[in-house]
């Protein structure tokens, strides 16, 4: 039978920064083809397809908390796979190969991680589950 795709509303204008992305305007309604845990969602808008940041999308039927995982304050051990220098003051700056604890996996691809006594946002794209004790 037909595949029913979820519809989301674009909540702010989005300009694409690379070829594989999809540009959209505030108020556009897109269909979600695939949700990646790194916060990029593959979307369809009229006859165009491309990746959009999940942070720019909201479900048509109001806030969707059902897919959001609960925080895990014990921390889920991960290792950073790339250097990242925080741009906003709530982000962490870490080098490749650092062990961190993931506290909250957010759908927008920015996870709350703890490094020692410091907690902040870090891109999920640069994290890999380590499964080892720090």
């Amino acid at each position: 039978g037909p595949i029913i795709l979820q519809s989301y509303r674009v909540i702010a204008d989005y300009e694409k920064n690379s070829k594989s992305e999809l540009a959209a305007k505030n108020g556009d309604v897109v269909e979600i083809v695939e949700k990646s845990e790194n916060g990029w969602w593959f979307c369809q808008l009229r006859n165009k397809r491309g990746w959009m940041p999940a942070a720019y999308l909201e479900p048509l039927d109001g806030p969707d908390e059902s897919e959001e995982q609960d925080p895990n304050y014990e921390g889920d051990l991960h290792i950073t796979t790339k250097d990242y220098s925080g741009e906003l003051d709530d982000e962490l700056s870490l080098q490749e190969g650092e062990n961190v604890e993931v506290i909250h996996k957010l759908l927008d691809g920015w996870w709350v991680v703890r490094k020692g006594s410091i907690t902040g946002y870090f891109p999920a794209m640069y994290l890999q589950k380590s499964g080892e004790t720090a």
């Binding site: 790194n38 990746w51 999940a54 942070a55 720019y56 794209m125």
Partner: peptide, 22 residues
Amino acid sequence: TIKRPPENPPPRPPAEVRRKQA
């Protein structure tokens, strides 16, 4: 179709959305 996500992390939520969440 080849669907490879962008290589950079997605942008943080737009400023107006962050204000609403705070």
